[in-house]
């Protein structure tokens, strides 16, 4: 037993650069990719089912929610239930739901004047991508820089200061920080230099692109500040791990300057966990920041979810949940698939 295992384990190492292990690796990668794809599809299937069940468990009569306070006679209610397919047995409803969802039809909204849910979500997608995407990229960049520096100069004033600030910001609720920034930078009681909300000033007078960026500053800063800590802390601990590695001693021995040792040798290795985090966070870009969008009246998917909740607008909520879940699943899959390309160790294991 023991000896065969050793033989098998030893085989790839025994033939460095040999042909056989390489083929095995490729076949293994294929199987591995397939496994990831199947896993993602299963999760997707579960989400589809869960989404259906969840919104049918909600209390209340959907037909009446739809009519919202309008006077409706029993005939109209019955007809509406028929139109909404509420009278069908649930397997039939599930079949319809599955068919329409796969066709890309998420139904019509109940609270937004019967607009197709897909159209509503598409309209609000870009503002959210702009806000959360920019914040995510900025947070990753700043976080990586802060974390790398803190870890490299472990225990120094910069490390203590930046780690303290990062943890402090991390523990703030987003909406509270948003309100604080709003109060300081966008209210007449404070500095009053930024707009108080929205994505553009409809009165115009300023170039629309600049105006949008101008409105983006505060909500984006809020999100960035909150997100930074995750990157800074993870980056810091991975740089700490690498700090005394022997290859760095070698690099120093070659005569490289300290910051060259960091950026060329320590950083690439230390970046891996941070990158994982980045890809995982990409999945949440779409669900974005419901509270920050609400504080800043930012017309994205977060605000749309908030509006949908007050109905409740079941088809819209269902559509949003689906889009949010699918993005997370896809981004996780992407991270899984990219990871072996980035880290040889994953390929070998």
């Amino acid at each position: 037993m023991a000896s065969t295992a050793t033989d098998a384990d030893a085989a790839p190492g025994a033939q460095p650069g040999g042909g056989a292990p390489r083929r095995r690796l490729r076949a293994g990668t294929g199987r591995w990719v397939l496994r990831k794809l199947v896993g993602a599809s299963l999760t997707l299937g579960f989400v589809l089912v869960f989404n259906f069940v969840l919104f049918r468990m909600m209390p209340g009569d959907p037909a009446k929610t739809f009519l919202r306070g309008r006077q409706a006679n029993p005939e109209r209610l019955a007809q509406l239930r028929d139109e909404l397919g509420l009278d069908d047995p649930w397997p039939v409803q599930f079949g319809k739901y599955l068919r329409e969802t796969l066709r890309g039809n998420l139904g019509d909204s109940w609270s937004q004047g019967n607009r197709p849910v897909v159209e509503l979500i598409a309209d609000r997608l870009w503002p959210t991508l702009l806000l959360s995407g920019t914040a995510l990229v900025l947070a990753a960049l700043v976080g990586i820089w802060l974390g790398a520096r803190s870890g490299w100069r472990h225990g120094q004033a910069f490390d203590k200061g930046s780690t303290g600030v990062a943890i402090g910001l991390y523990s703030l609720p987003e909406w509270w920080l948003g309100l604080l920034l709003l109060l300081v930078f966008a209210s007449p009681a404070g500095l009053n230099i930024f707009p108080g909300g929205g994505m553009t000033d409809p009165r115009g007078g300023v170039d629309p692109v600049l105006d949008t960026l101008w409105h983006l500053v505060l909500p984006c800063t809020t999100l960035t500040l909150v997100y930074i800590a995750q990157y800074a802390l993870i980056m810091r601990s991975s740089v700490l791990d690498e700090r005394y590695a022997e290859y760095l001693t070698t690099a120093r021995a070659k005569g490289l300057r300290d910051d060259q040792v960091l950026t060329r040798h320590a950083l690439p290795n230390a970046l891996l966990p941070t990158l994982t985090l980045f890809f995982l966070s990409l999945g949440f870009v779409v669900s974005g920041a419901i509270t920050v969008e609400t504080v800043y009246s930012w017309p994205g998917l977060g605000l749309l979810s908030y509006e949908a909740l007050s109905g409740p607008d079941i088809p819209l909520l269902q559509g949003l949940f689906l889009v949010f879940s699918v993005t997370v699943i896809l981004m996780n899959l992407l991270a899984d698939l990219l990871y072996p390309l980035l880290d040889p160790r994953v390929r070998l294991s």
Binding site: W126, P127, L129, L130, G133, T134, V137, M199, T200, P202, R203, G204, G205, D207, P208, V209, D211, T212, L213
Partner: peptide, 18 residues
């Protein structure tokens, strides 16, 4: 960044005739 930036012009509305 390039992906997210075009969002500005795309979603921003045409300059009003103000």
């Amino acid at each position: 960044t390039a992906l997210f930036l075009p969002a500005g012009p795309v979603t921003a509305t045409p300059a009003p005739s103000a």
